[in-house]
Computed example of a mutant assay.
Amino acid sequence: MDDTHQEVTSLVGREVYSNNGVFVGEVEDLKLNISEQTIEGLALGNLNAELFQEEVNAGQGVIVPYRWVRSVGDVILINDVVERVRDPDEEESDEIVA
C-alpha cells in the first residue's frame, strides 16, 4: 500500500487552525505539483468569516501555501495566517490566493 497516497487523501476534510488556535477553514482540495510530486497548497472552504469576510460573501475559498503547514494530526496547524491576512501591507512574498 502506498502510504504517501493515503496521507494526501486523508488531508481533505481536516480543519485548519493557526498557531494561535484560531480556526481558519477546512481542507476541500489540494494544489499539487504533479511533475515534482509535491503538495503546493491547501484549498480551504468553510472559512472563518472573521478572517475572510470578502471570500465568504463571494462564496469563494482560499489556497494557503503548504510551506505554512507546521503540523498535521487530527487538525492541521499553519503559521501565523491571522497576522498575514490582517496586515496585507507587510512586505512578504507569501500570499493567500482567493
Rank of each mutant, 00 (worst) to 15 (best):
M1Q: 12
D2W: 05
D2M: 08
D3C: 04
D3R: 07
H5L: 12
H5V: 02
Q6L: 11
V8A: 12
S10G: 13
S10I: 03
L11Q: 06
L11Y: 09
V12P: 12
R14C: 01
E15V: 01
E15P: 01
V16A: 06
Y17C: 01
S18N: 13
S18Q: 07
N19F: 06
N19T: 11
N20M: 02
N20L: 02
V22L: 01
V22W: 00
F23Y: 01
F23T: 00
G25Q: 10
E26T: 15
E26C: 13
V27L: 10
V27N: 14
V27F: 10
E28P: 00
D29E: 14
L30M: 13
L30T: 05
K31V: 09
E40D: 15
E40A: 06
E40K: 12
N46R: 14
N46Y: 07
L47A: 11
N48C: 01
F52R: 01
F52N: 03
F52G: 01
Q53K: 11
E54L: 04
E54V: 08
E55F: 03
E55W: 04
E55Q: 15
E55M: 08
V56R: 00
N57K: 14
A58D: 13
A58F: 07
G59T: 02
G59K: 01
Q60E: 15
G61I: 04
G61P: 04
G61R: 05
G61Y: 06
V62R: 09
V62A: 05
P65H: 07
P65S: 04
Y66H: 13
Y66A: 09
W68H: 08
S71N: 12
S71T: 08
V72R: 06
V72A: 07
V75H: 15
I78F: 04
I78T: 04
D80A: 07
V82L: 03
E83P: 00
R84I: 00
V85P: 03
V85Q: 15
R86H: 02
D87K: 07
P88L: 03
D89W: 05
E90M: 08
E91N: 07
S93I: 09
V97H: 10
V97P: 01
V97I: 14
